[in-house]
Design a protein around this nucleic acid. Structure first.
Lengths: 256, 256
DNA sequence: CGATAAGTTGATTCGCATCAACTATTGTGG
DNA sequence: CCACAATAGTTGATGCGAATCAACTTATCG
């Protein structure tokens, strides 16, 4: 087992009861009135744990459940041709993994556990019922998928327009912000189930080149990164270098 | 004016009355019952035309309208730092341009006309009313944004995993399929408001390299492309070479 | 404490950018 | 209508960013 120890500190399950996780997540986007809150708490959920590399959702016909990361990390991976695998999204605690599954027939990607990972499943019927009766919640759920798309666009822009060093800086800036939002950064440091080698499938660079680029960021005093621990010494400088817009994950809804 | 003549043949406004466009577009996703159909037809819309390069939607605070391309083409463009502009989406007739705008406060991109372009605006209040009263329509609208995200993921994968020639093949395969879906391909040929030079901001390659890659595709007998006219001689071979999954935009499905 | 995997360094090759010239096409005004 | 201007497309030469192959060091785990 060369995993990071157990499920990382970045877990909510310790502090938040199962039924309160979803309302908590959505309340970060917009105020929930008591009825909405109750509707969410009442959703039946099933919690599962996965070992590193396990497939949480397979590519192909969409499952009749959607899920949410409770602890750890999962990756959305797409096949490109036969041989190549590309990561198209990273999910950390509080992120919906495949909310879109309940509206699509077929998923173009798999979801796999990166390190140990705990997720909460919600049946599509229950979600459909929410969309039938609770318009405001529907809009908030919809918004979650829009934020997903927003991140996709940012990755796409980074992929087209940045070179290795900047691009790694961009990814680390994003993870820094996202881990900050769930309270998992202390003194500029966070732990996550990614190592340098993982950037090979994430960004498409060889491990050799990833390493040289990471060294450059280190040499400039912007970051440290050993194994699963990342420290961002100068978030602003790093964001600037990487053309990362720190506001791009501001999450509040326009839909009341 | 070095535009493609007037609004291209790829227009629906000639054959479909304004109020019927939106129901027509959504009915491609799933059956509409008469009430849903009526609700859509009743939406007040405003039609506008833009010249090449005109900004249809500016980056920044989200507008209180969303829009749909009726004729021509529009591009979603993002700023990366000060200088670089990246295209993150292409919209052709029948595509929603910024349906997500009505749920987000702030747009991370602009939308500009590529060639002459006709769009239909729908006020956010009207959309919000639809989401309040018509759950099935809401799911279909939501699904439009999910397909958008699906295309983003395909672009991202292509951008990370393919080289210039394949990547251009990928884009042309996608456009071929999308234009086919709106009935704008005849004998493998379609016209569009993009030229080779436009791939510079679309894919991030220099025009020199774009040209050499296009020539390679031509030399292999896969395509022809002069100015605004593209012919795909062997869609299957091209898709295969480009690792393009031709199924990825098939839209119809079961219960929504 | 040995085995395995992550990280590091160097040498070579290749894809693509860049700069520069040139041709072909389209559009414009006299 | 023709001559010219402007833009799209084409070709060549050179340099840099990143892949690849290979060897090696360091950390981790059983």
């Amino acid at each position: 087992m060369r995993l990071i120890e157990a499920i990382p500190a970045t877990t909510w399950s310790a502090t938040v009861p199962t039924s309160e996780l979803l309302p908590l997540v959505l309340s970060k986007r917009d105020r929930l009135d008591p009825e909405d809150h109750a509707a969410l708490s009442a959703l039946p959920v099933r919690t599962e744990r996965y070992e590193h590399g396990a497939t949480i959702i397979p590519q192909g016909p969409a499952p009749n459940e959607s899920c949410l990361v409770v602890a750890g990390m999962s990756l959305r991976t797409q096949q490109l041709g036969q041989s190549r695998t590309i990561v198209s999204a990273i999910h950390i605690p509080g992120d919906f993994v495949d909310l879109h599954a309940f509206l699509l027939d077929e998923l173009d990607h798999s979801v796999v556990a990166q390190g140990r990972c705990e997720v909460q499943f919600i049946h599509s019927d229950a979600l459909r019922e929410v969309t039938r009766t609770r318009p405001h919640l529907t809009r908030l759920l919809w918004m979650s998928t829009l934020i997903d798309a927003k991140i996709h666009r940012a990755w796409l822009a980074a992929s087209v327009g940045l070179r290795a060093t900047e691009r790694i800086g961009h990814l680390l800036s994003e993870l820094f912000v996202r881990y900050q939002l769930i309270g998992a950064v202390r003194d500029g440091t966070f732990r996550m189930p990614l190592e340098q080698k993982d950037l090979e499938s994430l960004l498409g660079y060889s491990k050799t080149h990833v390493n040289r680029s990471v060294q450059e960021l280190r040499a400039r005093g912007l970051i440290d990164w050993e194994r699963n621990t990342v420290t961002v010494h100068q978030p602003d400088t790093l964001a600037d270098l990487s053309k990362f817009d720190p506001k791009y994950l501001e999450l509040r809804s326009a839909a009341r």
